[in-house]
Design a protein around this nucleic acid. Structure first.
Length: 806
DNA sequence: ATGGGGCTGCTTTTT
DNA sequence: GCAGCCCCAT
């Protein structure tokens, strides 16, 4: 400790450790290791985002100071004593900003430029939240950091360099609905039967092919002698061609084409490698193969790649995510450092214990043990209700009671469900009780017909090659241009290789179109007029012009009373446009006025969940998928029933069941203090009533962590007979039986109502099978049973001969 | 080309 | 339960 240098290094470390004292040791290690590959395995609630933000702040402020041996040139005794003073004063929380700046200038080494950082998240919401927190930590520098979702980052790259692949700067992004339409058109054009080629399935197949970096040709070659696949390949080929012709990309393309761009044009890749020297990927367990490729390519030059993830929270396998990316990280980067964040700061010990117990039933996991230094907590409440209405009323009563007695805010509560369809009952109950709520997902604003129509008009105005949307709006409102005309229009356009607008201009000379030439030209003229108007009007003004000239507003107005909400919806677009314009005018990246293109880009990658801001005081309703990354003091996990959660279609594969269990894990770990698990013994879903038994995930929670309130047991006969006697608010002052242990799950007699979805049964003729659904029908229950040997059969429960297995 | 009526089928999760 | 489909009559 005698010379200046060693003292500097020593005090430097003390100061930096002090600066990041709020982090625990592995977290701090994550912050200080900014160079080289780093894998952070971050359990739920382990302060992941805080670490990411802290790490970026550290990079900007101190570079790689902590781990470097750097000594500032001209270091003197004064500097050291300044550092010592700073260290002491910091302790007493008395340092000025200027002193802090001076310190960081003194300690910093290889400071990272904000524009050299690329931070990728999965959802816009996560990106927004990260930016928000970064802004608090690093101020204006946040504007230069490239932060966004995979899709938004790629889309930006493709706007700039996509021309190399033959896309214009104004290419459109097709959402699933658009893609589906193109698939349907392609199937029709090939004269295929939609029943044999369900468009959804074909689209999924194409999507997963794209995830393997296959184009239609490659897919066709891989198809070999598989007839279905060969036919799929033809649809794929058409789909691909149509998208290209429309100057359109689907969601998969955004990633895939960026990877292609990088592979085919090394100089472009080099440009981005040089720009993105430090790469950070959040939710790495949810990345798919193309996303992995993208990251690999970008990080190849500098290897400053930090990925953060939790294999137990991987819930997007269904869209191609693979945990392999996490599991193989250490093989991919031999010098990778692996850090584990296992201390949970969010939940009570009980909630955490339950989550650990549930996830322990999975085999496919890296294995980790989340712990907390908190003790105890309230037991988890498991409520078994008669049906979904009672479930909703229970939740309503709980929230009301708590708001009244404990001064809880509405926004402290989250109601989660497996699928969007489940939200309706809860919503209805909330409306009746006047509980403010906000619902996410489901019928999304931008997927409403009228909204999509207006967006389609805008798309066509920006990019008239967008055939999917062109055909969507050409006859809305009615202009006398029917499907036959539209078809010949596109055929001619394709045949001659000229744009649709050009075909219209010449329409008089084509026999198939000549009769319609007048209306067609009128339409084209309108589009051109609006294109011209775009140049010199503000976006909200343009909106008015658009709704007027296209006749859309009149069309809605003429529909009378029922169209009122539709008019409100499209006027909402105007509001959004105005907001978009004013927000982006000042803060826009490049100081340019926001254009319609920019708005369309945002819309294309927008999801409802993005809108969530915790400012409003209302109960939050969303799917468990969308809630990832959020936390609430109190969480209601609803529909905890076999067949719902885990979903019926997952119950046949072990892999999918494990994914469902991870989903359960995500749901449970959202709760900070209170967790309610509700299950209805009968539920009306998709038009039929089903009888369900409690989800295995509830049974997997150790009995000493959970209390059961069984509202169905107050009455002698289970299920429908008690409908008459059931008091609507029986749970407000629970008269129901309270027990400390879950009910025995084994049943002796196979009475008719004891059959429920997911049960294994034996039939003397058909053998063993699994009950797919059970619906009440004329004093009996109709069971749909999937028999191992003979497939799905419908059988009445009372007809007898069925026996429950195990 | 348009509008209505009746039918089927389909329901997980999302950028 | 409902949306989207097809078919038919105008």
């Amino acid at each position: 400790m005698d010379n200046l240098q060693t003292r500097f290094s020593h005090i430097k470390k003390l100061i930096l450790e002090q600066e990041y004292a709020r982090f625990n040791p592995p977290q701090r290690e994550a912050v200080f290791n900014i160079n080289g590959p780093l894998l952070i395995l971050a359990g739920a609630g382990s302060g992941k985002t805080t670490v990411i933000v802290g790490r970026i702040e550290y990079m900007l402020r101190y570079g790689d100071s902590y781990l470097s041996d750097f000594i500032p040139p001209g270091l003197c005794e004064d500097d050291i004593s300044f550092m010592c003073d700073f260290h002491k004063n910091r302790h007493k929380n008395r340092v000025t900003d200027s002193a802090a700046d001076k310190i960081s200038a003194l300690l910093a080494h290889n400071r990272v430029k904000p524009w050299n950082i690329l931070a990728i998240t999965f959802t816009n919401k996560a990106a927004g939240e990260m930016k928000e927190r970064l802004e608090k930590a690093v101020g204006n520098a946040v504007r230069d950091i490239h932060a966004g979702t995979f899709h938004s980052i790629c889309s930006r790259i493709l706007r700039i360099d996509g021309n190399l692949l033959g896309y214009s700067q104004k290419y459109v992004i097709y959402d699933r609905e658009d893609s589906l339409k193109v698939i349907k058109d392609s199937i029709r054009e090939l004269d295929f039967n939609e029943k044999l080629f369900p468009p959804r399935a074909v689209l999924n197949e194409i999507s997963s092919a794209k995830d393997k970096m296959m184009d239609a040709k490659a897919y066709s070659q891989a198809a070999g002698t598989d007839i279905q696949k060969c036919e799929n390949a033809r649809i794929f080929e058409l789909y691909e061609a149509r998208l290209k012709k429309s100057d359109a990309m689907d969601f998969d393309d955004l990633i895939l084409q960026t990877v292609r761009l990088f592979e085919q044009f090394p100089e472009v890749l080099a440009k981005y490698q040089d720009r993105f020297k430090y790469i950070l990927v959040d939710e790495y367990q949810d990345t798919n193969h193309t996303q992995y490729k993208l990251i690999s390519l970008l990080s190849r030059a500098h290897s400053n790649i930090c990925v953060v993830g939790d294999d137990d929270q991987s819930i997007y396998k269904f869209r191609g995510a693979t945990i392999r990316n996490i599991l193989d990280f250490e093989n991919q980067y031999k010098d990778a450092r692996v850090l584990r964040l296992e201390q949970n700061y969010r939940s009570t010990a009980i909630i955490l214990g339950a989550a650990n117990a549930v996830i322990a039933n999975n085999n496919q996991r890296k294995g980790k043990n989340l712990w907390t230094d908190k003790n105890g907590g309230e037991k988890i409440k498991h409520i078994r209700t008669r049906d979904e209405t009672e479930e909703a009323e229970y939740i309503t009563a709980q929230i009301q009671k708590n708001a009244a007695e404990n001064g809880f805010k509405y926004s402290d509560n989250a109601v989660l469900y497996r699928m969007n369809a489940q939200s309706q009952n809860i919503e209805r109950s909330f409306v009746r009780a006047a509980i403010p709520y906000r619902i996410f997902g489901g019928a999304k604003f931008y997927s409403r017909k009228e909204v999509k129509d207006i967006i389609s008009y805008m798309s066509v105005i920006v990019n008239p090659n967008d055939t999917a949307r062109f055909s969507r709006i050409i006859n809305v409102p009615k202009r006398g241009i029917g499907p036959a005309t539209v078809q010949s229009l596109f055929e001619i356009s394709q045949g001659l290789g000229i744009s649709v607008l050009d075909v219209i201009a010449e329409s008089a000379s084509f026999p198939a179109l000549s009769k319609k030439s007048a209306v067609l030209c009128k339409f084209a003229g309108m589009i051109k007029e609006l294109q011209g108007a775009l140049e010199n009007t503000s976006l909200p003004e343009f909106f008015d012009l658009l709704t007027e000239k296209t006749g859309y507003m009149d069309y809605l107005k003429k529909m009378g009373e029922e169209s009122k909400p539709r008019i409100e919806n499209i006027l909402e677009i105007k509001t959004v446009l105005a907001k978009f314009e004013s927000e982006n005018k000042l803060g826009s990246d490049h100081g340019k006025t926001p254009s319609l293109d920019d708005y369309l880009e945002e819309v294309a990658l927008y999801t409802d969940v993005d809108e969530y801001n915790s400012g409003e005081d209302c109960v939050v309703l969303m799917t468990i998928h969308s809630v990832k990354g959020l936390e609430f003091p109190r969480v209601f996990l609803t529909g905890m029933e076999e067949g719902i959660f885990p979903s019926i279609q997952s119950s046949f594969s072990l892999e999918e069941l494990e994914e469902e269990r991870r989903l359960a894990y995500v749901g449970i770990t959202r709760a900070k203090q209170e967790l309610h698990l509700t299950a209805a013994s009968q539920r009306m879903i998709f038009g039929t009533t089903r009888y369900c038994k409690t989800s295995r995930f509830v049974e997997e929670i150790p009995p000493d962590m959970i209390t059961l309130t069984d509202m169905t047991r107050t009455y002698e006969t289970p299920s429908y007979s008690h409908r008459i006697s059931a008091g609507r608010n029986s749970f407000a002052q629970p008269s129901a039986v309270k027990t400390e242990t879950p009910p025995p799950s084994s049943r002796k007699k196979a009475e008719m109502l004891n059959f429920s979805t997911g049960d294994k049964v034996e039939h003397p003729v058909f053998g063993t099978g699994i009950i797919m659904s059970a619906s009440a029908m004329a004093n009996d229950t109709m069971l749909e049973i999937n028999f191992d040997k003979t497939g799905i059969k419908k059988i009445m429960a009372n007809f007898g001969k069925l026996e429950l297995k195990n």
